[in-house]
Amino acid sequence: MIDNSPEFRVKRGIGLTLMLVLLAFAAVPTLWVLILSFRAPMAIFQPIWESPLALTLDNFFKITRSNFPSALMNSFITAGLSTAFAMIVGVPAGFALAKARLSGKFVASWVLLLLRMAPPVGFVIPLFLLYVNAGLIDTYMGLVFAYMTLTLPLVTWSMWNSFAQVPDELIEAAIMDDANLMQAFLLIALPAARPGAVAAAILAFLVAWNDFFYALIITRSGTATAPVAVMNFISYDSVDWASIAVASIALTLPILPLMAIANRYIVQSLSGAVKG
């Protein structure tokens, strides 16, 4: 439909302006972080137009000498492993919940939701004591298990929704043809729910990647993740703004390609889940 009436142009103009305003809202703080990360210490809070040349790369070099890079590595390891484990355990569970004849399905979905919603302040101390007794403090596996309490309900819940879109007939047909359940799951259902699986994995990774709270409790110097290391730039009598800006960029950049690739899948799978 090509519409060139003046009325339409006005409306389009309003729409475009609104989008630009929203873009500014999204982008101004991002730009500000970029500027901070390149600012020389003396000029950090001067408006950029007053001293446009007071820029430096030192902030980037400085952060490579801190423990931040190893913390970033820790974030990758723990977020990656917890996502992998959550997929290994959660995808079959989601499949089973979608296809099995069960009476407690509603309760199961309620519990899955509730688990990622409990307020942490209340259970820090019990959680910590559990970890101490299990010898899991400051271990990668300890943090991975903790993240699974976030990622596993998420993966299970969203895979449940994804597998619900796969027609029962497909599975039944495979089983009629003498495939066992595992084969039906791996060869028929899983490929059909692939976009959902990719989306679930990425969302799970993001949840673990962004976590501050569990890492704060469970890690010590050996396994501290990047969000915790960011806090270490706030010290007794100074806030290292430039390092925080660099760290934010370092934390965001790895996510970008992931988001770009996954965007399509997320949209595809969610559109199934929330179509109504």
Partner: peptide, 19 residues
């Protein structure tokens, strides 16, 4: 020697000491 941010410190010692 582990040097952390003050807020990280507060939470850690409370937990380590109570535990």
């Amino acid at each position: 020697i582990d040097v952390v941010g003050q807020d990280v410190f507060e939470s850690r010692i409370t937990l380590s000491f109570t535990g």
